[in-house]
């Protein structure tokens, strides 16, 4: 196999795309200039078949990010050992440049709830999340990135600010952070915070990857504007501007375009990456062209 054991443990400072089955053939035929591809870990946990065949071929050609959506790191209950084993198998097999998961939970006695649910930020929940990140990193034998959530409600019992919570997890576990700029916009609007100051306070030196996506919009029960993390459209203009602001703090970082619902044709998706790549180039210290790692 040509997936080399000595792949760099960092994604290139380029725009990447979520890998969708409907684009497998196009990517392999055209080999578009894309910085990296990202997959949802759980979609590649089957025993065999086309998903693995295509992922092997694409991971031979491009850097790879594995993004988990089912580990439930923010759950009160212990992590699922079977799922950790599956993750380790996947990470050992594909040796991705990055592994990331969410500050959220999704498990319950009745089963997997298939959504990223919010948690209160308290000393107790912080201790639990730190344990879970530690355990994940031990199982995988590598550091992970933890993503800031998008949320629609708050908990009155929360005593720790979200950024302080994430910073504490990072400094206690050594994990990196995944800064989802769309999530920042969604949560900031939903909780009447200033998205720019959220970015300004974020521990930017910990950020190993940025996510961008499109949101939907509605109003809540009080008639206030409410944003929904939908991943079903192009990145919205205000999120593009917030991304530009983030880059002014961080410099170029690996940046993923997430478009998981109503997936467009590859050219439309690629156009989003090209736009982000141009912004990453402009954010490079000397405005230079960013090369793949």
């Amino acid at each position: 196999m040509s997936i080399t054991a000595d792949r760099a443990l960092a994604l290139p400072q380029r725009a990447g795309l979520g890998l969708k089955p409907e684009h497998y053939a196009t990517i392999l035929a055209d080999r578009p200039d894309v910085g990296f591809f990202e997959v949802h870990a759980e979609n590649y946990m089957g025993a065999g078949g086309p998903p693995h065949r295509y992922l092997e071929a694409i991971a031979d050609l491009y850097p790879l990010s594995v993004h988990g959506v089912g580990l439930s790191i923010g759950a009160a209950r212990p992590l699922d050992r079977e799922h950790l084993k599956r993750l380790r198998l996947l990470v050992d097999r594909y040796r991705p440049q990055s592994f990331s998961e969410h500050l959220a939970w999704s498990t319950h006695d009745s089963g997997f709830l298939n959504d990223l649910l919010p948690l209160p930020y308290t000393a107790e929940t912080l201790a639990r999340v730190i344990d879970h990140v530690d355990e994940t990193q031990q199982w995988l034998g590598r550091p992970m990135l933890l993503e800031n959530p998008s949320t629609y409600l708050l908990f009155s019992e929360s005593t720790i600010d979200e950024i302080d919570f994430l910073a504490a997890v990072a400094s206690r576990t050594g994990c990196g952070l995944l800064l989802d700029v769309n999530n920042v916009m969604v949560s900031a609007v939903n909780h009447r915070l200033d998205p720019v100051s959220y970015i300004d306070r974020f521990p930017i030196e910990r950020v190993g990857e940025i996510h961008l996506a499109g949101y939907d919009e509605t109003i809540d029960g009080a008639g206030d504007r409410l944003l929904i993390d939908a991943h079903g459209s192009a990145v919205r203009a205000d999120v593009v501007e917030l991304f530009r602001h983030s880059l002014s703090r961080s410099g170029p970082l690996p940046t993923l375009i997430e478009w998981d619902n109503d997936v467009p044709d590859f050219a439309t998706l690629h156009a989003e990456a090209i736009r982000a790549d141009a912004m990453l180039s402009a954010a490079a210290p000397h405005g230079g062209v960013i090369r793949a790692a």
Partner: peptide, 25 residues
Amino acid sequence: GITTARGTADPLRFAIYRNNVHVSL
């Protein structure tokens, strides 16, 4: 214990999570 920046629980916001679970399944 769920609340909003206005300081009140909003059934409509909680319903988004309910809906997400049902729709995604």
